[in-house]
Amino acid sequence: MHGYRAAIKRSSYKIEVGERMLTKEEVLRIAKIAKLSVKDDEVEQLIKDMSTIIDYADAINSVVEDSELEFDDINNIANAFNEDIVLESYDRDEILKNREGGEKGYFVVRKSLRG
C-alpha cells in the first residue's frame, strides 16, 4: 500500500462516499452549462467521482469560519493599466490562421454538418 493511502486513512477527517450524492439531473444540468455532452453510460461513474470529491471538499467546512475574509489577490497589487494608445492589430491572415473554412475574412460556422 502506498504511504499516502495510509495518510488518507489516518487523517483527521473521514470521507464517506455517497453522503452528498449528486443526482443525475444535477450532473446533466452542469454538463449542459459546461457545454459537454455526457453519454448515458458515463453518468454513473461521473456521479460517483464528483460526489466523492464534493464530499471531500466538505473538509474545508471543518476548519473555516463563515465570517473569515475572502481571498482576493495574492500579492496585493492594484491598478495594472494599459495606456489608451492604439497599437497595430494583427494581420487578418494570422487571426484566421488556425481555422480553415473562413470566408471573406469572417469565421464561419455552418448551419449544420452531416458526417
Binding site: N82, D84, I85, V86, S89, Y90, R92, I95, G105, Y106
Partner: peptide, 24 residues
C-alpha cells in the same frame, strides 16, 4: 469612446474589414 479596446491595444474604430481590429 476610448481609442483602444478595454483589455488590449487594438483600435475601437467602428467598422473596418471583418477581423482586422483583432489581436491574440
Amino acid at each position: 469612446s476610448t481609442k483602444t479596446k478595454i483589455f488590449c491595444q487594438c483600435t475601437t474604430e467602428f467598422g473596418g474589414e471583418p477581423n482586422t481590429h483583432c489581436c491574440p
